[in-house]
Design a protein around this nucleic acid. Structure first.
Lengths: 340, 340
DNA sequence: TTGTACGCGTTATCAT
DNA sequence: ATGATAACGCGTACAA
């Protein structure tokens, strides 16, 4: 059923039905009620395609996530959940587009086909094709993450550099002298993934400030990778007593590697990281970590996007958060070691 | 840029551009190449709304998930990932609709506004309003899960009844005499959530067949709930030595409750369940469980949906899977107890 | 209140 | 065989 059908059954014209619904022109109370009765009876909803064609907007946003084949981390899932939630509250639908950094069918279809009014981009790289493409097309977008030229776009982001530096200082305060940074995957870092680079910068800086020995290791986003990564670290650096990490998905594997190496956490070995709160709390021992406020960041990203959709000309806005480290069960004083 | 712009820049008419793209009429090689060059240069994609309006299909499907506020379980995430993946392979976009069983804005907007060609429905209840509504509208859909009248719709599902019965038999074989079923939340069960009811049926039947004492407990989908649930179970039934469960999200909490009660798994206490493989493997000890093949089920659900979209008249098809139990680290012989 | 042009891609029909 | 023209789908909003 379409608006013409409603009009005929109500004995009025199509435009009257449209005005009765939108209220953009006064419609007499009697006809308005008659029209509403017919609409309720038939369960009429305007055809989204026709409306989008005429209005030039789709009431839909795209959420660009990492390719679905690779499991999303808890932090990423937190972002998806909060975006979906915020969109529902704004009566917007969400189109999921699983796209990597390369040219991607889904991404092109969505942005070039004008299927959406705006885009939220996750897992942004320092130099990101998608950001360039969206700018070229002129489609409003907001990044969860930022490129190397952050002034030229709107974004919300986690301050990994500060957070990892804080982790290192916390570990140094506890007396640890040899600390490792467990990063995310080498591919991601090589592709210019911002958090990898920024975490490394914070790690190197803080380690230098405190005169620590720091090593960095890349690690894929899963427990198995965490296990082998820590096995190798311990083999290559027997004096290592602490890890700082942004790779939450690898942590269960790290725990296992440490347990198998006979290093108790936190008595013999400390770990501090950046993670989703739920994830950190449900590990055991629960992880000492800066808890990413995904709910808030997602909601703020949506706010920024709605503003840009309403007025694409407004200046870009940014939000960089560095939540405090929640002390839980994985950091403790460095055990005094016999000198060797 | 629209098709008219492409036509003008190529020096041909709009229909020629359309035919060159669709191949539904022959177009001379020369003009075809000239048109393609212009399209590539400008990055033209047909306007999705205009195309949808004309063709009567949107090349989009809806994936109805539980309200995003509540965290999805690993099994649910597996379904989402495989659906998104399968849709991308079929060049379909995915609209996420977070809707509970009740009337939901997002759900109504998506299905009544003809925004999608088909729907995949998760977390179906035995008596589900959304199934009724989709049937009434005549929109093709496939359930991941099924109602109490499963012949009248297409679905894929996990045979929780058989799987929980198998878990009970496995535990009985190991000598356990008092076994608990840890279900999902009481609200879900009260709302007529199929897996709850079917798991309970399988549990009751198998316990009776083996002459076991069986108790059932509901538990929300998180670790904290799992902890208190098992605490209560142990307090009320000190002789309990095993749990069968479909509540994977609660398992970390169950582990903690057992550890705090001094019951070692699997030496003193056994657990068997239904879970995502990754989840079961990453717990420690790794969970003995029937591994839900979410990838396969998601892919098959998409196949069924594509068939129904292509021909809504075909008979309904169903797929009920009962994957084998993978023996891991959480089930062992019941410890012989001194009689009390 | 109503008639109607518009947005844009598709395709049947007419022309070459 | 190929290109051009126009109608169509449907909701919106201006002109009448």
């Amino acid at each position: 059923m379409n608006i013409g059908e409603i009009a005929r059954r109500s004995g009025v014209s199509r435009s009257t039905v449209s005005y009765a619904l939108s209220g953009k022109r006064p419609v007499s109370e009697g006809t308005r009620r008659r029209i509403q009765a017919v609409i309720d009876e038939l369960g009429y909803q305007p055809n989204a395609a026709a409306r989008a064609l005429k209005e030039g907007r789709t009431r839909t946003i795209a959420l660009v996530i990492p390719p679905a084949s690779q499991r999303l981390t808890d932090v990423q899932l937190g972002f998806v959940a909060s975006i979906v939630d915020a969109a529902a509250r704004a009566d917007l639908d969400v189109l999921l587009s699983p796209s990597g950094g390369e040219h991607d069918r889904s991404f092109e279809r969505v942005v070039s086909g004008r299927r959406v009014d705006g885009v939220i981009l996750m897992e942004i790289r320092l130099d990101d094709d998608r950001v360039a493409r969206l700018g070229q097309i002129g489609l409003p977008f907001v990044g969860i993450g930022r490129t190397a030229r952050p002034e030229s776009m709107s974004w919300v982001d986690i301050d990994y550099e500060t957070l990892i530096a804080r982790c290192v200082h916390h570990l140094a305060d506890l007396g640890h002298r040899q600390v490792a940074l467990v990063d995310r995957s080498a591919e991601l870092a090589a592709a210019g993934y911002g958090p990898s680079h920024r975490a490394q910068a914070g790690f190197t800086r803080a380690a230098a400030e405190r005169g620590l020995t720091g090593v960095r290791a890349c690690c894929a986003d899963d427990a198995a990778a965490g296990l082998t990564c820590v096995e190798r670290l311990l083999a290559a650096h027997p004096g290592l007593t602490a890890i700082a990490t942004i790779n939450e998905a690898a942590i269960p594997g790290m725990y296992r590697a440490l347990a198998e190496a006979g290093r108790k956490v936190p008595a013999d070995f400390s770990i501090a990281g950046v993670s989703a709160r739920h994830w950190a709390e449900n590990l055991h021992p629960p992880l000492t970590a800066a808890d990413v406020p995904a709910d808030e960041l997602g909601a703020r990203a949506m706010e920024l996007l709605l503003q840009r959709i309403a007025d694409p000309g407004i200046p870009h806005r940014h939000l960089l958060v560095a939540p405090p480290i929640s002390l839980r069960g994985t950091t403790g004083p460095a055990r005094v070691r016999e000198s060797s």
